[in-house]
Design a protein around this nucleic acid. Structure first.
Lengths: 96, 96
DNA sequence: CTAAACTAGTTTATTTTATAAACCTAATAA
DNA sequence: TTATTAGGTTTATAAAATAAACTAGTTTAG
């Protein structure tokens, strides 16, 4: 009846991040900060969780002497996102 | 960009309950128990929360000497569910 | 009749999760 | 050179989810 919803994706901020990463080659920390309007701390934590799950890759480098964190979605992450969308649709269109 | 997701609906069990209630006049506690496969305690708690929010109505009666709890969705609940679905779609179809 | 098992839930205690505030390190500006 | 800014991370707190234990009563088997 109701499929299990990946708890890692069933969170507003993490889902936002994944949704953004679905659309781009890669995204910088500040891009995510700007788009999501979340706090830095929160984003930092959620990036870690997504990374730990293998849903995204995180590259740390320097630009203009400042640290720069860049993220991109992995194939595993894409798959998870697509599965999540599929599972959710079972909840959203109860009349179909 | 990303709309706020009603935290009351952004939960697997509560969303399941609301999804079920969208389809029926009313549903008994045991129907929800059976359909969702959740524990009684969990369902009890989530029903209370949905009720407190005014998303559902809860009637308590007796049938065959046993207590019987029946739920139905309210117009406020229907509206909330529809808004939730609309808001979520902004996350799910990032390429559109 | 009475003890065990069952119905239909609710409450409570514990764990997990989310979140923001405080903090850190290095770089640039005044 | 000390103040401020950039780019984050860590930690402390609050909120939520969950299951186990409990309540209250009913049915059934001996």
């Amino acid at each position: 009846m109701f499929k299990h919803l990946d708890p890692l994706l069933h969170n507003q901020l993490r889902l936002s991040i994944m949704s953004l990463l679905m659309n781009v080659e890669s995204a910088e920390f500040n891009f995510l900060l700007d788009q999501t309007k979340a706090t830095k701390g929160n984003i930092s934590v959620q990036i870690s969780k997504l990374k730990e799950a293998g849903y995204i890759e995180v590259k740390k480098s320097f630009r203009k002497n400042y640290p720069l964190t860049t993220c991109n979605i992995t194939s595993k992450g894409i798959e998870a996102f697509e599965n999540y969308v599929k599972a959710l649709s079972g909840y959203l269109n109860p009349n179909k």
